[in-house]
Structures are given as structure tokens and as C-alpha cells.
Design a protein around this nucleic acid. Structure first.
Lengths: 364, 364
DNA sequence: GCGGTGTTCTTCATCGTTGAAGAGGCAGGA
DNA sequence: TCCTGCCTCTTCAACGATGAAGAACACCGC
């Protein structure tokens, strides 16, 4: 008993007009007389026809009025991360203003399925964010040959290598930003640092990682931020090889707590913990509390992002314009984009708060 | 110089096979020999063909692998509201597990544009949430004749009126839940209540509203929650007509602050403020602070939702399974859904915290 | 040697719509 | 009167793909 779909043609036949006229009644009211248009709409309504099938219209027109967003981590994860949500909010506000929808492309633990989802997404353009240099999802997005915009990673140079030179890219100078917050901690007098990182490569490696592994990270953001810390350490005469760096997978408080615990278990114990995100830092604060360490008296902790939660925690961090990234990337996708686009590097700002202070006096 | 799109047919011709074979190489690997499949894929790659056009395939197949979500308020707003985000997270997790994408349908201040966006959304099903009884967007969604699921409002009875009886509906018993939190406050001894509400109708009415306006609300959730409060008041012998009720528009702290200020300006001043959402309550707490009122010593405040922020504020509230709503609605959309679906009423729970207490002793 | 069963690939029609181009009629100007 | 231009509406041919059905061939068992 399933009612068969009503088509444009049926409405046209019912009324004895051409299909194109019915089409025009819906899409180009100026192309037919008001009287006929009213009759067409009335007939359509009577037959239960609610307008041209978007799919068929999209095929014919070559546009569907939606852009896709693909994320390395699953979408479900994205909604739990305030930073990811802020990015989406930025994308959405621009897309919505332009009347475009936003298709969240489903992710999967299986990279092949993720890539297939990108290949099969019904969109006019794709926005990808936070992908590893070698993510198949990215290759799939490039192969689609629809307009592409990239946020954060991979960087412009890697995009060029992959055959997408000049694709709009929006991000920050992760290396400099991380160097700044590291320098801030060093300036307070700390000499024993520890770093809590999220993923370095698509295949998650947990635990402490050496300099070679750090430099080999395929997540550009991780690689650059670690390099930034090393820059600052070197400038202050701190031996980087002695700095424990813990790698994790996602940017979650749970990962942060575990990573911080691992770093704090090294001897001599670091007096400052540099976390690659505010959410990791949130976990690091929990780890510190669990160990009975006072922040910042016994231990300084820094984050990255200046997410909404950071102020409440009094977290020293680096502010980056996450929402704006989304806006700019969306704008780049929706605009006609004639030639190759120049990479857009947005400003960051060190935000010192209450979780950093001078290191404790020499331990007894 | 824009490269023309590569088609299935071109790959087929290049290789001297039928178009269908190329199609099968991508979609039904078991339908052709591995050797030929490899040759097809290689040729496709060489020509820069990344797979069948999702739009055309969707038209032919009659499915596109995405469900749409339409919201009364703009999407940009949705990302700012933790409750809306939780709902989306629920929807997404189920959709993603099923390999389906999520199309966020753009909203607009102009209801006609919003409705048009729904009509033109390229989706296999639609999920709508928090719509007024008379929202054109809802009418458009029903007219689409694709599977439809509704969260919260309008209620099942209204859906039946609109010609969509048996459409999957997920929500809570707003009336009973609000009665419960009101009864909690009354049990503490309060007799002078005030209510801070969000929108009652699509055309926003700001300020204090009388009983007639309350009952005429076209947002079922607002209507039912107010009715619930009135039920509890009546049961406790409190005259509802003497209870100031402020209506607003969105569920934001700003609206909450303004609404609370209006309610607290009435004489005699209420000793308890019932807010229809946690975000409104957040604003109410600000208003109280601004007036120098201690919570709960001078003023009790309640929320609704038990959003992530509620615990931190120590807010007495009603917990509702927002994320689960999204999951169930998505499941209903993605499952074949043979006959009419029974409305799914999820449980709620009163969560007493620190913002409610006995009323102050009689004022001097 | 023959019908039956699979595998592999092809043919054909069609999904529902809209751009491009065209045809008919009517008004206004030369 | 005739031409021009405008307003309406129509015709035609795609847009790019896939389901259903079928053809060609190989292999099997008896």
C-alpha cells in the first residue's frame, strides 16, 4: 500500500501543461503567469506533490546546496569535544547564511569505510579537518574533485604533494604558539618539563615517545607543536632529550590523565606539564590532584585552545580562533574561488592564568 | 580550463567494456572477475575517476545515505546550546554506526526559507525537533513524504492532526516533570513562585504573560511545562494567577537573566524561580547575583534538562535523557518502520542540588 | 551428448528533473 | 502593414548512474 512517489510529470499531465511549466512554477515564478502558477501549485497540492525531487534537480543542476564536513575521528567524538563543536559552529553559521546545508560525513574505525563515505557524500564541496598526512580520507576527498577546504592539518605543503595545491587552508602557526607557551613556563623558572600529547600517528602509539618518534608524527599539528616546545627549550638551554613526552590518541580528559600520570612517573619529576589541548590539560589536573600535587605550587600545567572550559579551570593556555577557522573555511568553500588560495594563518595569543607559577623550591 | 567531470561511461569506453561493468567494479565486486575489476579500477584511476557520482547513483537507487535534521532555531544557535548538541550527538552516533550521514538543514529567520530548505534537502529521512504546532517547517517535512521522526514537540496528537499519524515521536512527559520540580519547591515551603519561560509562540512575546497566553502557547513543551507547574501549584493551594510567568524567545542565559529580572521585579517578590531550562536558570542566577540575592537563602532557583553545566552550578533541575532521545529518533528513522510507531516517552528524574532550599523567613 | 547450474558480462530502460532553444500570440512603433 | 520584442509556454535532450533481464560460455553429472 506504499504510495508511489508523485512526480512533476504527473502534475503536468493532470493539468495538461508541460513538465517544464510545473518546474517553473516551483523554481522560476517569473517565467509563467501568476494565474497558471496558482493552478499548478493547487494541483500539485491536491495530488500530494510537494515540489521537485531535490535529488533529481541536483543531478540536473549540478549542485545540491550542501557542503560536507569530514573528520578524522568519528562524528560522535566530535560532538563531545568543545573545540570541534566550535569549529562546526563557525562552519554552520556561514553555510546557513548562504542557505547551504551541512552534511556530516560518517566516520568509522575502518579507514576504508571513512574514505568510502567521503566518496559517496552528496555535496558541492568538502571541508576536512585534523587529518593525518596519510589519511585515506584525505586522498578520497581530493579525488572527489569538488571544492576542498582544509582546516589545521595537513598543512599546505602536504596538500600540494597530494595533488591539491592551492586548496584553501586555514590554520595557525602551531609551532610558534607552542613555543610561546613553553617559553612562558621556562620564564617562570621551570627546567624540568613534561609534555602530554594526543595522537602522533593514525595507528595510535601510547606511552612515552622519543625525539625520532616525535619528528615522525604524521599529524602535523602534533609534530609542529612538539617542535615548538623543543625550539623554546633549546633557546633556554634545556635538554629536550630529557623531556618526557607522552603520546595518546584522542584529545580527551581521560587520555590526558593517563598521559600526565605517565609523565609524572618519570624521575626527576617534571615541575611543569605542557598539554597539547585544554581537554588533555583537564585530565592532567585530575592526575595532579590524584597524586596530591598542588597546582601551581607543586606543578604548573598548561593547555592549548582556550576552550570554553579553560577559563573556569583557571587554565593557562593558548587561545586560537577555532570558530573563526570554521567560518573562513566555509567561506572559502562557498565562494567561487577562482585561482589557488593563499593559506590563511590566524593569530594566536598566550593566555596566562592560574595554573602556572614558579617551580617549587628544590625538593628535599 | 575547468576539467570536465569524468563519467562512468568514459571509463567504460576507454576500456571497451559496458558501463554497467564499471559500475559493478565499484559497487558489486562479486559480479565480475577480479582481473577485470583491477583493470577497471586502474583505468578509472588513470582517468581521474574516483567513483560513481553519488547524486546520480542516489537518484537511480532512491537512497542517498543521509538523514536530515531540521531545527526551529537556526543551526548556529543549536551549536551554542549544550542540550541541542547532546541531541545531535545522540542522532549522530546512531547514524554513524549505520554508515549514514547527517545533513543539518539550514534554518532562517524567514519561515518560508526554512521550509524551502526542508523541501530541498537531499535526504532519506527527516528528523525534526522542538517545533511549534504551526511551524511551516513541519508542514514541509510532512509534505516531503520521506520517513519522519519528531523529537519533543509537537506532540503525537498534533502530528496526527497534521496528517502524520504514527510518525515516530520521542519525548518526555513535560507536564509531569515540571509538576515534580514545582512540587519539590513547594514542599520546601515556598508559596510565592515565579516562572522564567522560553518561547511560547513562534512570534516572540516578551514579558509577563497571563494564563490565557500560557494555555495558548503553540510550543507544546512550554505549554505542558507551565501546565505542570500549575497542576502542582493547585495541588498545594497556591493561586496560579498570582504567579508571574515571563516569556522569552530562545533558551539562553541572556533571556534567562532578563526574564528573571522581570519576574523578580513583581511584588511581592517570588522566593523561588522555576526556569524552563538550565540555560535560563544560569541567567536567572546571574540576575539574582546582580540583585544581591543569595541562592538559596534568599531565592531558590530550578532548571530543567540537567545539562552538563548544571552540576557545576549546583543547580536543582530535572534530568531528561537528551542524548538518548536523539539515539531513539535516529534509530526510528533508519529502521524500516513497518506500521505506525508508538510514541516513546522517556523517563525523567528530579535532581535536587544546592540552588533550592527553604524560603527566607518572613521579610521585615 | 545433453540438460542444468554458475559465472561473467551486456543490453535496455529508467530514475525525476531542468538548461537551451524554439514557437505562438499580442502590443507597440515605423 | 509589417517588423520587432516581449511574454508564455513547449519541445528536446541531457544530467550520470543502476536494476532487471538476458546472452554467452564453461563446467558438471549422468
Amino acid at each position: 500500500m506504499r504510495a508511489r512517489r508523485v512526480t512533476l510529470r504527473q502534475v503536468a499531465d493532470e493539468l495538461g501543461v508541460s513538465a517544464k511549466t510545473v518546474s517553473n512554477a516551483f523554481n522560476r515564478p517569473d517565467q509563467l503567469s501568476a494565474a497558471l502558477r496558482d493552478r499548478v501549485l493547487a494541483t500539485a497540492h491536491r495530488l500530494g506533490y510537494s515540489g521537485p525531487d531535490p535529488l533529481a534537480a541536483g543531478l540536473r543542476r549540478g549542485r545540491v546546496g550542501a557542503i560536507g564536513v569530514a573528520y578524522a575521528n568519528g562524528l560522535s567524538y566530535a560532538f563531545d569535544d568543545p573545540v570541534a563543536v566550535a569549529l562546526l559552529a563557525g562552519v554552520t553559521s556561514v553555510a546557513e547564511a548562504a542557505g547551504a546545508g551541512l552534511l556530516l560525513v560518517p566516520g568509522s574505525a575502518d579507514p576504508r569505510r571513512s574514505a568510502a563515505a567521503v566518496t559517496g557524500a552528496v555535496v558541492d564541496g568538502l571541508l576536512v579537518a585534523s587529518l593525518a598526512d596519510d589519511d585515506p580520507l584525505l586522498a578520497a576527498a581530493i579525488a572527489r574533485r569538488v571544492p576542498l577546504a582544509v582546516v589545521d592539518q595537513p598543512g599546505p605543503d602536504r596538500l600540494a604533494e597530494l595533488g591539491a595545491p592551492g586548496a584553501p587552508w586555514v590554520g595557525i602557526d602551531d609551532r610558534a604558539a607552542m613555543a610561546a607557551v613553553t617559553a612562558h613556563v621556562l620564564a617562570l623558572g621551570h627546567r624540568r618539563l613534561g609534555v602530554v600529547a594526543f595522537g602522533l600517528t593514525r595507528d595510535p602509539v601510547r606511552g612515552l615517545v622519543d625525539g625520532a618518534a616525535q619528528a615522525a608524527a604524521t599529524y602535523a599539528v602534533s609534530r609542529d607543536r612538539l617542535a615548538g616546545s623543543r625550539d623554546a627549550a633549546a633557546a633556554a638551554g634545556v635538554d629536550w632529550d630529557g623531556v618526557p613526552v607522552s603520546a595518546g590518541t584522542d584529545s580527551t580528559p581521560g587520555e590526558g590523565e593517563a598521559g600526565a600520570a605517565a609523565v609524572l612517573a618519570t624521575t626527576p619529576r617534571p615541575t611543569a606539564l605542557l598539554c597539547l589541548s585544554d581537554r588533555l590539560a583537564e585530565g592532567a589536573l585530575r592526575a595532579a590532584a590524584r597524586l596530591g600535587l598542588r597546582v601551581p605550587a607543586d606543578l604548573s600545567v598548561t593547555g592549548f585552545d582556550d576552550a570554553a572550559t579553560a577559563a573556569g579551570l583557571g587554565l593557562t593556555t593558548v587561545r586560537q580562533p577555532t570558530r573563526r577557522k570554521g567560518e573562513l573555511a566555509a567561506r572559502a568553500l562557498l565562494a567561487p574561488a577562482a585561482g589557488p588560495a593563499a593559506p590563511q594563518l590566524l593569530p594566536t595569543e598566550l593566555v596566562p592564568r592560574a595554573t602556572t607559577g614558579p617551580p617549587p623550591a628544590l625538593p628535599g
